[in-house]
Design a protein around this nucleic acid. Structure first.
Length: 311
DNA sequence: CGTCTTTGACCGGCGC
DNA sequence: GCGCCGGTCAAAGACG
């Protein structure tokens, strides 16, 4: 998706680094216009109020810019901390697995079912270190966690697509079986899905998607872009639990409210860094607002009404 | 009757 | 070469 091409022609003052000199210049011009019209004291008063208002909004804008910068710093710090934790976990798991392999003949029977999975929401999918050859090469692999009733034994994750189950297997490091699905909507669709309960939290279903659909979501074919915009606007994707790995091939999402945006993962997969994702969100918000004719009309009406009613 | 699910068999990669 | 393991196949049964 080329989100850069979105229509953001409406200047929403989104650029926090815009020089304040420019604003002061505009303010003078603004005052000048009213000075020329002149003649009525009420107009001057009104102009004064507007200038005051402009000042107030400028300072508010500054504050918001500062807050946004702080939030961004915190977000980046948290993200890098999360990445560190993840890489440490992978290393630990790798070392432990080497030990386990050496000793597996001795205690593997006790090991299954008593082991606590150290990685939350992991299932047992994160085995790229075990299979360097695969290493998520070239395949679009994403993983989502969906909260499901623990008493519900069916391994189904409703994501709007049609899936055909073609296998089920009990894996070594998770007592609950793993189900294998193919996209059945289009025979040529290469997407596969694996669903398994998290070993740590049985109420979590871990769904791993491989590949990309070569068709639209059959349940709502016309809502693809809309859903993406909604996701951008509501922020319903939980980024506190999501990460974009540097390889760029794996995304972990926690879509606790999957019905809100099935396509969120597609959007995120196509955006590179956290900064790019942030930019993407802003662009999406701006473009969805500017695409809304009602919003444009209302804004234009409000501005012109304020100015021309008094001339 | 067509579609979907279940489940044991089979295959290939990997480590020893 | 052998065994383990994850992934896939395909026959049989269930279901609407």
């Amino acid at each position: 998706m080329d989100y850069k091409s979105s229509d953001t022609s409406l200047d929403l003052k989104l650029n926090p680094y815009r020089p304040m000199k420019e604003e002061a210049h505009e303010k003078k011009e603004f005052e000048g216009v009213f000075a020329q019209v002149d003649g009525k004291a009420s107009i001057k008063e009104e102009a004064g109020h507007l200038v005051e208002e402009l000042d107030r909004m400028s300072s508010e804008n500054k504050k918001l810019t500062h807050t946004l910068a702080l939030m961004r710093e915190n977000y980046d710090a948290l993200l890098s901390y999360l990445m560190d934790l993840e890489s440490n976990n992978s290393r630990k798991e790798f070392i432990e697995s080497r030990k386990r392999k050496a000793e597996s003949q001795l205690y593997y029977g006790n090991y299954v079912g008593t082991k606590g999975n150290t990685e939350s929401c992991s299932g047992d999918e994160d085995q790229s270190w075990k299979r360097p050859k695969e290493n998520f090469k070239a395949k679009n692999i994403s993983r989502i966690c969906v909260r499901a009733d623990a008493s519900n034994t069916s391994l189904t994750v409703k994501d709007g697509y049609q899936w055909r189950k073609y296998g089920q297997k009990v894996t070594r490091d998770n007592p609950s079986p793993r189900a294998y699905f193919r996209c059945s909507f289009a025979p040529s669709c290469p997407v596969k899905k694996k669903v398994q309960r998290s070993a740590e939290d049985p109420s979590l279903l871990v769904a791993t998607y491989e590949g990309e659909h070569n068709h639209v979501n059959p349940s709502r074919p016309h809502e693809l872009s809309l859903a993406q915009n909604q996701c951008a606007n509501t922020g319903s994707v939980d980024h506190s639990l999501s990460s974009k790995r540097s390889s760029g091939s794996t995304v972990t999402l926690d879509l606790i409210q999957p019905e809100l945006c099935d396509s969120a993962k597609h959007s995120i997969q196509e955006v590179g860094s956290p900064a790019a994702f942030q930019q993407f969100l802003v662009q999406q918000m701006a473009s969805s607002l500017t695409r809304d004719p009602n919003f444009k009309t209302a804004l234009a009406g409000a501005i012109s009404g304020r100015i021309f009613d008094n001339i």
